[in-house]
Amino acid sequence: MKSVFILIVSACMSMSVVAQQPQEGESPTKPSAQQPAPTDQQQVEPQPTAKQWLQRLSNSLRQLNFDTSFVVVRNNRAEPYRWLHGIEDGRELELISLLNGPRKEAVRVDNTVSYFESNQQPYSVTTDSISGPIPRAFTSDIEKVHQSYDLVEVGKSRILGRPAQLIRLVSKDKQRFGYWVWLDIESGLLLKAAIINGEGELLEQIQFTHLTISEHSNEMLKQLLEAELPKTHDNPLEVSQAQLNWRVNWLPNGFDMLESNQHFVETINLPVDFLLFNDGLVDVSVYVSATDEAPRKSSINQTGATVLLSQIREGYEINVVGKVPAQTANAIADSITFN
């Protein structure tokens, strides 16, 4: 065990020495501001559109070997993460781990994602992307996102010492937050992301602090190939596809239901009816549970961009959680009717 640690630590140290050297010729150079404008009219390459940029992001996140660190900033709290991705023996390997506080990490081997958290049993899920600080939408189909957001190419700036292209995901209505992403012009990878509310205020951001793109995948990732991953999550108390005696009558356009079940909320053992909606970028959960408490108007708690709205009426407690504006959460909660 000890020798493993030493090995890893030395590997990390050597990596950080090599770090910050973007490898030239790693990816085909992009048509970009880096190149002097061609004088010959025939050779003018079309500027990639915002959508193409995001497709490229998705490809880069799946195909490149990278080792990167980033910090998620919300309220006055910063959470540092390390994120590794690589291809080894034709298998896609990925690791995201929180570096401060109790351990929290996720690893992915092809289509198996395993989560390790300090306060619960590790479990695996069959999916092709890790759910964590980086929005899943960045590695999946951009078409879905495009239905609810306008993709706008804004301008270039310098992030993490690299030339970057800023792309804005602007909500087509006022029911959701906007996302700004800064992409590395050279590799197409993410360098910074921010969630902005309707008033243009910054709610949450992800700032990368280090990025190394390499020819080969990281040693740490290779170990994942030999690791025995935990079993698939199985909750015996969960009733999926349950018949619920209530319904949500309003959602912003573009939100589809991903999940409908009845389960117990851990630690407080509260039985809840649960619905999960997604618009390609943002997840919204609706919880309904019976309660004998007195009716209460909506109260909002917000951390970063995540809003938790809670109200009690007609003998039910309704909680709406997600990275949406409070008004949206409130409208969703208010639209619920009971049979």
């Binding site: 989560y115 991903l258 999940e259 959960s285 995540t306």
Partner: peptide, 20 residues
């Protein structure tokens, strides 16, 4: 509220990716 917030995150994690 804490528990619900954590549950929200967990439920998202449990989703098999639908948008391949």
């Amino acid at each position: 509220l804490q528990a619900i917030l954590l549950d929200h995150q967990k439920q998202i994690k449990l989703q098999a990716s639908s948008s391949q």
